[in-house]
């Protein structure tokens, strides 16, 4: 596996922003909100994909903002498909290309097949098609834009919404804490299919994202990339904080960046000293109603998950932040 992607990415190992490719495949003029982290992610993923690719895109934010009817922001051959069948369409495209190649009707190299979808189109509605396509072993790459709710229809909760988040269908109040369930771990579901390449990425770490997409494209067989994309509108954060929030999500351990190559885990961005999740939560209006007990619960849950991941990666444990306040005060009997 080392010869795929890694050899290609050698020339980018200088990590200089200026040396990244200048050709834009997701052009300006799309209608994404100001400071959209998802548009930034799409921009870099399409740059990493490069020429000769066919994209099937599920309904979602990036489909709405990029293809207002007589116009399109995409430079690739691009097909809009429904929520349920993104991966099914991608596997159909891949099979069709394979047959064309076998009959000798395909001039030039085999085009890359990429499917894209939001978190609703991936972990809720499109999960059965994605699971089937991964199981059949089609040579395609699935990219999930995870903005943690159904944002374009008005911030409804999805299975990817984290615990405690305010959405319009999980409003906080006297009897509710907001979203009452933990975030579905879509990456582990993809790993469980035994596919050759699974990774998490974030547009705040552009080089990391770029290499992972290149690696996924060059992997023979299905590959899955989960991209955390900050949504200033739905997360109720400032428009200029989207890159900073993506970095904080990694530094607090809420969204660690790792890749799974043939079942072997590897942490790609190591954080020597973890930050408390409070730093990440306090910048977002959707977590504004959380108080110390809930934040401590999220901190404990994040730490436990992160330690499990580090054990799988065989990486050393970082320095975790102290809990504040340390424990709940005990109830005095008879009081």
């Amino acid at each position: 596996m080392e010869k795929f992607g890694y050899a290609q990415s050698q020339k980018f190992d200088t990590y200089a922003s200026r040396l990244m490719p200048r050709q834009e495949y997701f052009t300006m003029g799309h209608r994404a909100c100001q400071g959209c982290g998802e548009a930034l992610a799409v921009r870099w993923v399409t740059k990493a994909i490069g020429k000769d690719a066919i994209i099937a895109h599920a309904t979602g934010c990036m489909e709405i903002v990029s293809s207002g009817m007589p116009q399109t922001a995409w430079m690739h051959p691009w097909i809009h498909v429904a929520f349920e069948n993104t991966a099914a369409v991608a596997s159909g495209i891949e099979t069709g290309l394979k047959i064309l190649e076998r009959k000798g009707k395909l001039a030039g190299p085999m085009p890359k097949v990429v499917a894209m979808g939001g978190d609703g189109g991936t972990s809720d509605i499109g999960l059965q098609a994605l699971s089937g396509a991964m199981e059949r072993g089609h040579n395609f790459t699935y990219v999930c834009w995870d903005n943690e709710a159904y944002m374009n229809t008005g911030i409804q909760r999805s299975s990817s919404t984290p615990y405690g988040a305010m959405t319009t269908t999980s409003p906080p109040g006297k009897k509710s804490i907001g979203q009452s369930t933990w975030k579905k771990n879509m990456v582990h579901i993809a790993v469980a299919h035994g596919i050759p390449y699974v990774a998490t990425a974030s547009p705040s770490y552009i080089f990391d994202l770029y290499f992972k997409v290149r690696k996924a494209l060059e992997t023979p067989g299905p590959a899955y990339i989960h991209v955390l994309s900050v949504c200033p509108t739905g997360w109720r954060s400032a428009t200029d904080m989207s890159v900073r929030l993506g970095r904080l999500a990694v530094e607090t351990g809420i969204f660690p960046l790792y890749e799974v190559v043939d079942g072997r885990y590897r942490l790609t961005v190591e954080v020597p000293k973890m930050r408390p999740v409070r730093d990440y939560l306090k910048l977002q209006g959707r977590f504004r109603h959380l108080r110390d007990p809930e934040i401590n619960l999220i901190q404990r849950h994040t730490e436990a998950n992160y330690k499990l991941l580090l054990e799988k990666c065989q990486a050393p444990f970082p320095e975790f932040p102290p809990m504040f306040p340390p424990e709940e005060p005990e109830l005095v009997a008879g009081a």
Partner: peptide, 22 residues
């Protein structure tokens, strides 16, 4: 608009000036 909603011009969203929003 073509049948099936085909758009033959890639990147045509550039004609829309989103700079008016700022």
């Amino acid at each position: 608009i073509e049948l099936g909603g085909l758009l033959r011009e890639p990147g045509s969203a550039r004609a829309y000036r989103v700079g008016d929003w700022r």
